[in-house]
Each structure stands twice: as C-alpha cells, then as structure tokens.
Design a protein around this nucleic acid. Structure first.
Length: 593
DNA sequence: TTAGGGTTAG
C-alpha cells in the first residue's frame, strides 16, 4: 500500500493519536522520503502528544538533509514538552551529527554543553559523534579532550580519533594511535589507509594495505577505493592494474564508487582506453563517474571526446555540477575551442543555476590564453565579479610565456606575487620570459629578488614504475643503484640527439632559471634521468610512463619528443597539469602546456 | 520502533 493510502486510513480511524503508531509512521516517512521532510513534519503535527521517538526521528532525518539547522526546531519542541525523559542519548547522537553538518563551531559547542548538562557525556555513541563533529569543525584539541576523557575508549571511538587526526593533518599521530590500538577491525584499517591516501602519503597507504593483506583482515570495496586513489596520485599503473585484477579475483562488486575510482586511476595513469572501458561497462553512473571520465579525457588531451560525453550525460538526464564544468572547460581548452567554452561558461548560470567559481574563471583565462588571445584573457580577468586569484593570473602568465609577451607577463607575475609572495612558479615563469627575449639583466634581477625574499624553487622529482616498483628520481640525486648505467644511457642519448642536429640551449643563465634546480646540467633533469632509466629497464616497445611534480621543462619536452622518435618509444608524461603523450616525434599537447 | 568509526570527481 502507498504511504498516502496508509496515511488516509490512519487519519480516518483516528489511529494517529496512538503515540506508538504515530511515531512509527513518522519515522518511516522520514526515512523513505528524506527529500520531502515537510510531509513527515506535517504528519508529526497530526498527533496531540508525539513521542520522543517521533521527535528523534525528525532530528535524525534533518541532520542528513540539506537544511540540517531545522533539527533544532524539533529539539526545542522536546525541551518545551513534558516528555520523559526529556532529550535522550538518541536525541544528542543525532544532534551532534547536525552540528557536524552545519560546520558551526558555536552551535557545536553549545550542543556539547547541553548534552553534558543532561548527563550524556559518557555515552559512547555520543562520544564518537563528538569526536567526528570536532574534527569536522577543525577543533582537534576539543576532539582530543573528548577522547582523552574516555577511560577505556572502544574500537569505534579510537577509529573516530584516528580519522580526526588525519583530518587535522597529523597523520603521524593518527598512525601512533592506530599502532597502539589493542584490536583493529577492518574499519580501523580502512580508516588509516584512507588517511594516508587522503593526505597524499600514497606509498604509505599502499604499504599499509599490503600489511592488512598479510594480517588476513577482511578487504572490502572501501579498502580498494583508497588503494586506487593512492595509485592515481602516484600514477602507478602497474599497481593500479594489480588492484583491478585483485578486485576481479576476489569478486568484489564494482559499485558506482569503486568503478569511479577505477576510471580515475586509469585516467591519472594515462591509460584512457582502459578508463573508458570501465566507464562504458558500468550500469549505474553518478555525477562523480561522469565528471571523472570527462576530467580524464580533458587531462589526456581528448577535448572533443570530453564534450561528446558531456552531451551524452545531459541526454541521459544527469544534472551537471561545478566540478563537471571544470572538466568541460578544460576539455574546450585543450583543443582550443574558445567559443564553445564561452558558451558552456555562460550556460552554467543561465541553464544550470551554477555560480562560476574561481577554478572556472581560471579555466576561461587558460582558454583564451591557449589560442593566443592574451588581451581577451586580460579583459576577462579585469571583468571578473570576484577578485582574481593567483590561478587566473597564473594562467595568463603561462600564456605569456608561450606567446612571449613580456609586458603582460610582468603584470601577471607582479599580481601573483602580490597575492602569494612565495609563489616560486611565478618568478620562474617570468625569468623564463625574460630569458626567451635574451634580457639577461632582468633575468638576473628576478633571481636576486628570489634570493632576497627567500623564495625557493621546488626540487624537481620524477617517478617511474618498473616491475611493480616505484622509482623516484630527484634532480641531482645519484643514489639510484643503477645510476652508472643511467648516466651512460644519458650520454648515448645526448650523442644521438647531436647527430640529429639538436643543440641544447647551453646558456648558463637559462639553466638556472628552469623550474628544476640546476644541479649538474640541463641534461640531468629528473625527467630525463627517469626516461633514461625507463629505456634501460623496460622491454622494447613497452611505453615509458613517468610522473613529474612540476610542469614539464622546455628542454626536457623538446628532448622527449626526439627520444620518442629515435628510440621508437611511446613516452607518457604526467606533469603537474596534464598529460603529454609522446609518439613518433610528436606530443599530444602540440606545444601548449 | 531510533544511534557511533572507514570509500569516489576539481
């Protein structure tokens, strides 16, 4: 029977005044129709004496809704009523959730006082809720205080505390707590692995996962989502493939979330074919799934495919959100579709009611910049309704480097430094612009300013995976056990490049101003070292996949194009921004990155 | 009849 019919029957027979039946009915409507809480509220009022259970059900439903603050309407009704007991442990468990949702510190602390006053401070459900709430509110000390006051914290509160530490950025302490736990179930393991994955300690996440396997702990979808996320960050395709095979072998169901993680992993490892294979194989998709696939296509340079997917998504009735539009605009940008990009940008507000965010403005500047419309890019920045952020100016600066526009480049870098005085990228790009026009005095000025302000260049680092092992090369680091062979290979590459007429830009000033610190020489940039290592350690015909922490340097880019031809090797580089697929002497970025 | 800890896209 339909709920409405039941409702009518209950009303006709006067049964809604039976407090027990009424409570049950309110709770079931609130659960079944979480998006229409007005209905359950209406039913709540159709009884003269609603039970505490009915009120609690309303607080619970609202704590998960888009308007959590309404929970307090029902809480106040409880306080005003003569119910006995007044609010109970259930009331506060739900109310604490509400506060976590609200991200309102004052309210959270007020609720904490109230539940203490009512004597529920020692309830373990309330305690774990409080730890979660304080972590959400960014009040780790308060979470810590709640935790430390528990004489014998159980598994759940301990796990909540581990997560709280991760959220506040103290993974080391989270791990200490985890190690000290007398017992750990699979949720505790998942919490710690997720913690490492979320704060970028991907290798630690993978190591802990392997330990979890060794200990024979149950491995679920949740564990695998974190494992895949760690592989995505590392760009570790072999490990990601292994994880996919493991999921199949263990028959872990590919839910929407797990499927989305697989798509993201393959995308960020540069294997878009495989990512799309997973995508098309998924029966259920949500907005994360679509946005992930679109973002992957854009990042890998398949702008048109990204837009096709966007159209398909709309045809299937899926409503885009802000993240989707970041992917759409990037898709337009990588193939230089300015008008199309503008159209989509306008549609955000007009068609979909979405307010563009800073990221979207940054994408638009990039869109104009890529095709060389620098003045339009500047115009766009000047007309932004919000204060332009460093990202918007950064997109312009990058375009100035490509199109060698010194004047605008100076302006953009000045603006960036005003906003972020330690933005090393801005200095590096500006000095590159000066160097391009052989303006060595200014190059030297920039370097002196950097020195004076103590702005340090981030050391370049490149990662390559060989035989399931991740090798990390820092610029100037010779510690790799096979460094001798790598050096010999680099010399061979250098010889073969020279035979083809390649002349490195040997101006020492230029060396020193590339994004990577000059340690040895231009030819020892971490990117080249990793490629040389790939050439000596991977079988012929196997693509070389590397991940860089910085934007590709110009010389490395030029050299990689040539290596792909000379050695007939596909080289896939993920830099800080996007992918470069090098093949047969060409790069998918077509010279713009 | 109600409750606590772990997972996805920028």
């Amino acid at each position: 029977m339909e709920i409405k019919q039941i409702h009518t029957q209950l009303l006709i027979n006067g049964l809604l005044n039976d407090p027990l039946l009424h409570g049950q009915f309110v709770a079931s409507i609130a659960l079944k129709h979480p998006n229409n809480l007005d209905y359950s509220t209406q039913v709540l009022h159709q009884c003269d004496n609603p039970t505490l259970f009915a009120f609690n059900s309303m607080i619970r439903a609202h704590s998960k809704s888009s308007n959590p603050r309404r929970s307090f309407v029902f809480y106040n009704r409880i306080l005003q009523s003569n119910l006995s007991p007044h609010p109970d442990n259930y009331t506060f468990t739900f109310l604490v959730r509400t506060c976590a949702q609200l991200l309102d510190r004052e309210t959270g602390q007020a609720v904490h006082s109230a539940l203490t006053k009512h004597g529920f401070e020692s309830d373990p459900h309330v305690q774990s809720g409080l730890i979660y709430m304080y972590a959400e509110l960014g009040l780790l000390d308060c979470a810590r205080k709640v935790f430390d006051d528990i004489p014998e914290p159980d598994l759940v509160t301990q796990t909540a505390m581990v997560t709280a530490c991760v959220k506040s950025g103290d993974v080391g302490f989270a791990r200490d707590l985890f190690d000290e736990m007398p017992q750990r179930d699979h949720i505790a393991w998942n919490a710690m692995i997720a913690g490492y994955a979320q704060c970028g300690q991907s290798r630690d996440a993978l190591n802990l996962f392997h330990l979890m396997q060794l200990e024979g702990v149950e491995i679920s979808e949740v564990s695998m989502v974190s494992v895949l996320s760690a592989c995505s960050h590392l760009g570790a395709l072999d490990q990601g493939r292994w994880a996919h095979a493991y999921i199949k072998r263990k028959k872990i169901p590919i839910t929407v979330m797990l499927g989305t993680s697989l798509i993201d992993m393959y995308s960020k490892c540069g294997n878009m074919d495989k990512a799309m294979e997973v995508f098309w194989g998924m029966k259920d998709k949500n907005i994360y799934t679509w946005s992930s696939a679109m973002g992957g296509l854009a990042m890998n340079g398949f702008g048109w495919k990204c837009l096709e997917l966007f159209n398909l998504m709309k045809q299937e009735g899926v409503w885009p959100n802000e993240v989707t539009f970041v992917s759409v605009l990037r898709g337009c940008s990588v193939v230089g579709l300015v008008e199309e990009g503008c159209k989509h940008f306008d549609s955000m507000r007009k068609e979909f009611g979405l307010e563009p965010m800073l990221e979207h403005y940054g994408c638009m500047v990039d869109l104009y910049g890529r095709v060389g419309r620098l003045n339009d890019a500047l115009d766009f920045i000047n007309k932004m309704p919000v204060k332009p952020h460093a990202g918007a100016w950064g997109a312009l600066l990058n375009a100035c480097k490509i199109y060698k526009n010194m004047e605008l480049g100076e302006l953009a870098s000045k603006k960036i430094v005003e906003l972020e005085s330690n933005n090393h990228g801005a200095y590096v790009l500006l000095s590159n612009i000066y160097a391009d026009s052989k303006n060595w005095d200014r190059v030297s000025n920039v370097r002196q300013t950097m020195k004076a302000k103590g702005v340090r260049k981030l050391p370049g680092c490149t990662v390559i995976e060989v035989n399931d092992e991740v090798h990390e090369f820092f610029v100037g680091d010779k510690s790799h056990p096979r460094y001798g062979e790598i050096e010999a290979k680099l010399e061979e590459i250098s010889m073969r490049l020279k035979l083809l007429g390649y002349v490195a830009n040997t101006n020492p000033v230029l060396f020193d101003i590339e994004e990577e610190e000059k340690e040895d020489a231009l030819c020892k940039h971490s990117e080249k070292v990793a490629i040389a290592f790939g050439l000596i350690s991977l079988k012929e015909g196997v693509p070389i996949r590397i991940v860089k922490n910085l934007r590709a340097c110009w010389d490395c880019h030029a050299v990689t194009i040539m290596i792909s031809e000379i050695y007939n090797r596909e080289i896939i580089v993920r830099d800080r921004n996007r992918f470069h697929h090098f093949k047969d002497g060409d790069c998918s970025c077509k010279g713009y990155w």
